[in-house]
Amino acid sequence: MAIRMIAMDLDGTLLRDDKTLSAENIAAVKRAVDAGVVVVIASARPPRAVKAIYEALGLDTIQINYNGAAHYDQVRGRFVKHLPLEAGFVREMVNAARDLDEQVYMSLEVMDKWYTDGVDDSLLTETSKHFKPDLLGELDELFEEPVTKLMLLAPKERLAKVHAMVLERFGERIAIHMSDEHLIQIVDPSVDKEHSVRELAGYYGIDRVEVMAIGDAQNDAGMIAWAGLGVAVGNAWDEAKVAADEVVGSNEENGVAEAIERFVLGA
């Protein structure tokens, strides 16, 4: 069957290593949109860090943010879905992480707002490179609202111990996603890009076999495996490649454009 929906990751997939969009990828996405294909961004990023990309691609679809912890309607400027963690529970995880490693950094994403009690320039996320915290304060000031996503940051050799502890103590109550070696992303256990892509396919009236999902990282493997056509870019993690039906060029080689031309537009 023809592909009627594309769900695509951003970092490491659509974006080059310098986090820019290539002219080839922009043109291919726009050709797909012009052909009537529903193109959905599925990213760990918050809405504010997707906005410029979304506009450059000329999209009008609902986007998947925070790995699926939120769905955002960029056109109308509103969230249409939110699956947060309870603030007290997040505080418990942060305290446990700090007991193990008092220098681990903590960031909270709360409905497109960034709350933190400290920033380390060597441990930045892509979003924090371009946006300042909405609240930089003491720990006790930060836990007043349900938390969309908790991020724990430390050098990879130290983060491994924190990761293991969080899984052992809290693993049944959370979902953990990793796209960078210095960053753990923690969300509600029902959150996964797979679930979000499935839900939006239903919203747009598109069958599973008509969906192509393309990504590169561990947090993309679920949607790649679920889609009728799962695609991994050449630089993808092993988990994504194992889940994929096809492997295309890397993010530096316009792999998204290649996938669209080969599998969607039939060029």
Results as ranks from 00 to 15, higher is better:
124 L>R: 13
133 P>N: 08
141 E>T: 08
100 L>Y: 04
62 I>E: 12
119 V>H: 01
60 D>H: 10
123 L>C: 05
133 P>Y: 03
105 Y>M: 06
127 T>Q: 13
96 A>I: 07
129 K>D: 12
106 M>G: 05
88 G>K: 04
91 R>G: 06
70 A>T: 10
79 F>S: 15
136 L>A: 05
113 K>L: 11
111 M>I: 00
106 M>E: 13
61 T>I: 01
68 G>M: 09
89 F>W: 08
106 M>S: 13
109 E>T: 02
81 K>Q: 14
84 P>G: 09
145 E>M: 10
89 F>C: 06
108 L>Q: 11
67 N>K: 00
59 L>E: 13
116 T>A: 02
121 D>H: 07
75 V>Y: 01
67 N>C: 07
110 V>W: 02
119 V>I: 15
102 E>G: 09
117 D>T: 10
122 S>M: 00
61 T>N: 12
122 S>H: 05
122 S>F: 03
94 V>F: 03
82 H>S: 15
81 K>C: 08
95 N>I: 04
126 E>W: 07
99 D>V: 00
131 F>V: 01
85 L>W: 15
129 K>H: 05
109 E>I: 02
140 D>E: 15
138 E>V: 04
138 E>N: 12
63 Q>F: 02
78 R>I: 14
149 K>S: 07
131 F>T: 12
113 K>R: 15
62 I>K: 03
121 D>G: 06
90 V>H: 04
109 E>Q: 01
93 M>R: 11
138 E>Y: 07
66 Y>R: 00
90 V>A: 11
106 M>H: 13
66 Y>K: 08
111 M>W: 01
88 G>C: 08
142 L>A: 08
60 D>E: 15
96 A>T: 00
110 V>E: 03
106 M>V: 14
112 D>L: 01
112 D>A: 06
98 R>T: 03
75 V>H: 05
99 D>A: 15
93 M>I: 06
114 W>C: 04
116 T>W: 06
111 M>A: 11
123 L>M: 02
81 K>Y: 07
131 F>K: 09
79 F>Q: 14
123 L>S: 02
75 V>K: 12
118 G>A: 04
94 V>R: 08
146 P>E: 12
125 T>H: 07
62 I>R: 07
106 M>F: 03
105 Y>R: 10
